[in-house]
């Protein structure tokens, strides 16, 4: 286990030092974060016009959902997306060979290898939103703690779905749009699940678990999530994580290690 932590530390130190070469990126990503946040607040603000309450949410309650979304978006940019890109590159160039030959779990390696500091502005913005909403809603520390666990589980779902999509590269080789598609799917999680029509609610719960990524963890933070939802969250996140591991092992049977 210690070996894993040491490896991880080295991985991230190496990635961050490589990324630091592009310093203007900090400016660009900060601006992107601010603009995205402003746009999202503007859009949700439009929904709150004329005394309307989307899905029966109060303004700070809607902000908890947006906060969890922004947090996960940051996680995606910092950790999930760079590693998905690395996976497709490794498969395309055939250098996945070297990873597979290392005595470290290959899925761990391919999921944690890279870290980009540029998603951290979004993580900070998400935490800021959650802090503000939590203060307005007077969330107890215990609620925050259990909500935190729920957010982690939501992140696991996002990871598992993305990793399974990225694993498809073993067959399709060219899959650069995964990140864009994943970002678009997560986009649906910007708004409370109750603000959608019934068909959408079913789809985002049963087919594409967007509800479990943002709305359920946000409800857990507010202390409003029922036991059924929390159980659902645990089952979906555990199940998808196991599925991502199984699918990865299955895909490796078909990996032909392109190019001789």
């Amino acid at each position: 286990m210690r070996r894993y932590f040491k490896t991880l530390g080295l991985f991230w130190a190496v990635s961050v030092s490589a990324e630091m070469a592009y310093r203007t990126n900090f400016l660009i990503t900060s601006l992107t974060t601010l603009l995205t946040l402003a746009g999202a607040l503007f859009t949700i603000g439009l929904l709150f016009q004329n005394g309307h309450t989307p899905g029966g949410y109060s303004w700070p309650a809607a902000l908890t959902v947006l906060g969890v979304y922004t947090l996960l978006d940051g996680l995606q940019q910092s950790l999930l997306a760079p590693n998905r890109t690395a996976l497709t590159e490794h498969v395309r160039d055939g250098t996945l060979d070297f990873v597979l030959l290392k005595p470290v779990d290959a899925q761990f390696w391919m999921s944690m290898r890279r870290f980009s500091p540029w998603g951290l502005t979004d993580v900070a913005a998400g935490l800021g939103l959650l802090g503000y909403a939590g203060w307005r809603l007077e969330i107890s520390p215990l609620g925050a703690l259990s909500g935190g666990v729920a957010v982690v589980l939501g992140g696991v779902i996002l990871y598992a779905v993305g990793f399974m999509l990225a694993t498809l590269t073993v067959w399709f080789v060219k899959l650069y749009n995964i990140t864009i598609a994943m970002a678009a799917l997560l986009e649906a999680g910007r708004y409370p699940i109750q603000a959608y029509p019934a068909v959408y609610r079913t789809f985002f719960t049963a087919v594409l678990p967007v509800a479990f990524m943002t709305s359920v963890p946000a409800a857990a933070l507010r202390g409003e999530a029922g036991a059924g939802w929390l159980l659902g969250l645990a089952v979906v996140s555990g199940g998808l994580f196991a599925a991502s591991c199984a699918f990865w092992r299955f895909a490796l049977r078909f990996y032909t290690s392109a190019s001789s």
């Binding site: 929904l47 309307h52 989307p54 498809l168 899959l175 603000a195 959408y200």
Partner: peptide, 29 residues
Amino acid sequence: AEILLWAIATCLPLIMLGVWTQAAESGDF
């Protein structure tokens, strides 16, 4: 396969379709 992902990636209007039809049901807009 890429293009299918692209099509998914550009579904934002359909997401907003859900949000706004649901909001408009209330007659507040």
